[in-house]
Design a protein around this nucleic acid. Sequence first.
DNA 1: CTATATGCAAACCATTTGCGCGCAA
DNA 2: TTGCGCGCAAATGGTTTGCATATAG
Lengths: 144, 144
Amino acid sequence: MKSARQVFMEYLGDNGMSMTHQRRVIVETFLESEGHFTAEQLYTRVSSQVPDIGQATVYRTLKLLVESGLADAFDLGEGVTLYEHHYGHAHHDHLVCVECGRKVEIVDETIERRQAAVAQEHGFTLTRHRMVLYGLCPGCSGTG
Amino acid sequence: MKSARQVFMEYLGDNGMSMTHQRRVIVETFLESEGHFTAEQLYTRVSSQVPDIGQATVYRTLKLLVESGLADAFDLGEGVTLYEHHYGHAHHDHLVCVECGRKVEIVDETIERRQAAVAQEHGFTLTRHRMVLYGLCPGCSGTG
DNA sequence: CTATATGCAAACCATTTGCGCGCAA
DNA sequence: TTGCGCGCAAATGGTTTGCATATAG
């Protein structure tokens, strides 16, 4: 399997774009960042390593990361877009604690299968989906 | 079952709020509006009936409608919040055509059951969920 | 009367975009 | 050299909020 860097380089090449110092820093920082994070959080990390990289460039590069398949962008209903690694990572949905915000990655084959079936029943060709389960995590259940 | 108006009146009463001319118009217009619509669309409809009702009041009332359980607010990933009737309506998720935007309401008992099970497996008490399937509708499938 | 509501316009806030300079290939 | 890319700051756009006035009860 190609490395993430390689995938990004190819994406740039295929679209007549070039690798720049800024993009390299942002992509590296992105690849080193675990879990979910916002564009602003990534910007902060990038800035701590290399100041003078503009926020706009982080947003623009994040968009390229999504388009190239390296990143996944999603919204858990908190008004901000969250990003996470996508390339080489299995698909998953999210389970979110409405109390503390804790997020757990989930997958269920039965659900995945039924989603495709339901789409098909309506004549749709399913391309992707988004599922978020909201509830109280073990730690917050007793707090109610 | 109480009427939607009744539910709203009680909600207002329970929270020390009062029924006003504006709220009455907005709630009636909301109840007469079918399907999904944005705050702005509702505002437009309200204005056509009773001018001089501010957009802010529509937003504020829409929030009350959601809190009182009459409306459901959700985001299908298009950057705008959509609203629809909730009270007395069965839960459902959405199937959206990424080409033409067509929206179909869906429900699948198997999925619903598995969602609760998956949440439970992680010790979570499921309170609600959001699922959106994206794909190509029959009419757009051949367009590729 | 007194608290709540309203309209208006300004504020918000994450994200996008215009612009003139700068660097990659 | 020749555009693509960058930083900056201003613009966006849906939604929220502050404030002075108006109204429900």
